[in-house]
Design a protein around this nucleic acid. Sequence first.
DNA 1: GATTCGATATCGAAT
DNA 2: ATTCGATGTCGAATC
Lengths: 223, 223
Amino acid sequence: MLTIFARCKVHYDGRAKSELGSGDRVIIVKPDGSFLIHQSKKREPVNWQPPGSRVRLELRENPVLVSIRRKPKETLEVELEEVYMVSVFRAEDYEELTLTGSEAEMAELIFENPEVIEPGFKPLFREKTIKSGIVDILGRDSNGNIVVLELKRRRAELHAVRQLKSYVEILKEEYGDKVRGILVAPSLTSGAKRLLEKEGLEFRKLEPPKKKGKTKGKQKTLF
Amino acid sequence: MLTIFARCKVHYDGRAKSELGSGDRVIIVKPDGSFLIHQSKKREPVNWQPPGSRVRLELRENPVLVSIRRKPKETLEVELEEVYMVSVFRAEDYEELTLTGSEAEMAELIFENPEVIEPGFKPLFREKTIKSGIVDILGRDSNGNIVVLELKRRRAELHAVRQLKSYVEILKEEYGDKVRGILVAPSLTSGAKRLLEKEGLEFRKLEPPKKKGKTKGKQKTLF
DNA sequence: GATTCGATATCGAAT
DNA sequence: ATTCGATGTCGAATC
């Protein structure tokens, strides 16, 4: 990883186009082509290039770091006006993040413990592709209804209700009114609740589980 | 800005929970509280803390950087096993990014030049709040129909069609069938096209404009 | 503070 | 390569 502290100007052209006037920033270039320019505020880089980009140093009036991505064509140019520090760090890292509390784990919980939805609920499919879209969980209730679950790991917003409503409508075209839609999340925004109730959809409160032993993320094998 | 190269372990608990085993990473702490941990791949930090977090150094068996955020309560701990470099950079930066090619500029273009949608189109409202959601542009056509525009700066996906469909349905409840919905974007995915046509919604091809003189982003005032 | 939605979103999975 | 949806999304604008 290459790290540079410098006063620079930045020019970007690609999916959008931007300019950034002269100022001090931290620049990081990763071996996979990722390119980050950080100002002294915010979590997000002010400019960047994603992995797979190619970088080179051009010597014009000032030295210029040029990073190019193909497909989509994107160019990032960093004009180095004053370089305060350059550093190369050969980082050795064989570990991957393990994360728990995700939507995927909510789904696992429901398959292992379907009664958290309701007595008699039978989950049948996970990530089931339908005519338009992909349903989180598709199952049946004790009355033989088809049940669509839309899961959210955090407070569900309008967006989630629109998803659920769309899936239910599509399945109703095929299976008639014996289709129920249930939004499964820790809570609902006011707007989500309003639309959900208007559309005759349901809500089940469920928190994403935080497992004790680590979970997602490829576990390193011993050999 | 504080930059550290170190071999470290990372523990996070908050909205979710994660563990990252020992390895070499670049750590950046910004004066606004932003905290970034970068591995040698990807654009995204493997762990982070957003602006407003408070950081301190604790001396346990190893030195540990602890960053805490309130609301939601989130804790990030970086156990420093071996520190290769520590550097402080007093970055002076008064510039902000100016960006062009955004959805906001598509909207401006349509208000200044409504015929890019169709002859006789009259845009009336921008970001208009309705019963459930916020419509990008609300206007009328030459036949007195109400027209809902959903704008996307890039290829529109199913998500965008669901938004548009939801807005049109809500407005039809109030205004009857004299409501049209038009998705405005450079292109459509196959799935978006299918749902759009099934629902009797329309598509207008429009690229986000890239202005010559810079555009968005507060322009610096002279004094 | 809550809600809604855009983003040069990024990322991964499935087709 | 395209499509689709999650994300500890982040961030801004509005209410």
